[in-house]
């Protein structure tokens, strides 16, 4: 899990600044994610957690600062490359909304594979295995609206992990769930990430969820709060 100080970070953000309209979401935030590590980004609402995740995942370009992934400047890559990266190397899980409401759970999970060129049959077969792994095989034929929140989120995890990404970005993945469903989703995420060596960037305001991570970065007013103790 902890690769120590010597390891080169897989993903690193340096002095990020980002303004949305009149609000400054990030002012000089830096963070790094090592390969296979689970990192929690915590902070109060509006502290810039989600914007930091968006910048690191290449969804949003920062106004200033740099994002480096595998030696490449993510903030300078063209949109097409970024899309490709998000499809292959990255997986994302949000509080809700990443599942297409009209597709069944199985097709939702199969979608990233089909986008990568797999045939529908192959994609569905692999999607089925992933649903099994997250304990929602029985819901394969249901649409997101017909599942419980926990089942939908586990389906989202399956969709994020089905392509074998190097990093999974999870933005309040348990935000809409009760504590038991939240525990099931987090346990499934942590186990799979550990088994496959996937790094996870976990944005949450919930300390119990953050405790699933190896390390914590705390944000306040768009910058990282220096902590006396390091894990």
């Amino acid at each position: 899990m902890n690769n120590g100080e010597n390891a080169v970070p897989l993903l690193a953000a340096r002095d990020l600044a980002k303004t949305h309209g009149r609000t400054q979401a990030l002012r000089g935030a830096s963070a790094e994610l090592r390969a296979g590590e689970i990192l929690a980004v915590t902070g109060a609402s509006g502290s810039g957690k989600s914007t930091l995740l968006h910048c690191l995942a290449g969804i949003v370009r920062p106004d200033a600062g740099s994002v480096t992934y595998g030696g490449e400047r993510l903030d300078r890559l063209p949109e097409k490359r970024l899309s490709g990266l998000r499809r292959g190397d990255f997986g994302v899980v949000f509080q809700f909304g990443q599942l297409i409401p009209e597709l069944t759970a199985l097709d939702n999970v199969a979608l990233p594979l089909m986008l990568a060129g797999s045939s529908r049959g192959d994609a569905q077969a692999r999607a089925g295995e992933w649903l099994e792994r997250f304990g929602v095989r029985g819901q394969a034929g249901l649409r997101p609206g017909e599942m419980s929140g926990g089942q939908a989120q586990r389906t989202s995890l399956a969709r994020a992990l089905v392509t074998g990404p190097k990093v999974v970005f999870a933005d309040e993945p348990t935000g809409a769930l009760d504590s038991l469903a939240s525990e099931q989703v987090m346990t499934a995420l942590v186990h799979t990430a550990r088994d496959s060596g996937t790094a996870v960037l976990l944005v949450t305001h919930d300390a119990q969820v953050a405790a699933y991570a190896d390390r914590e970065v705390r944000l306040s007013d768009g910058a990282v709060v220096p902590t006396g103790v390091t894990a």
Binding site: H54, A57, I59, E79, K80, S83, G84, L85, R86, R87, G88, F90, G91, V92, F94, G97, Q98, I100, P101, L111, P112, L115, R159, A160
Partner: peptide, 16 residues
């Protein structure tokens, strides 16, 4: 549009 933005963020290409 919110759902579409999420799809795009999750890597579904604009073309699709």
């Amino acid at each position: 549009r919110r759902g579409l933005a999420t799809q795009h963020a999750a890597g579904v290409p604009h073309g699709v």
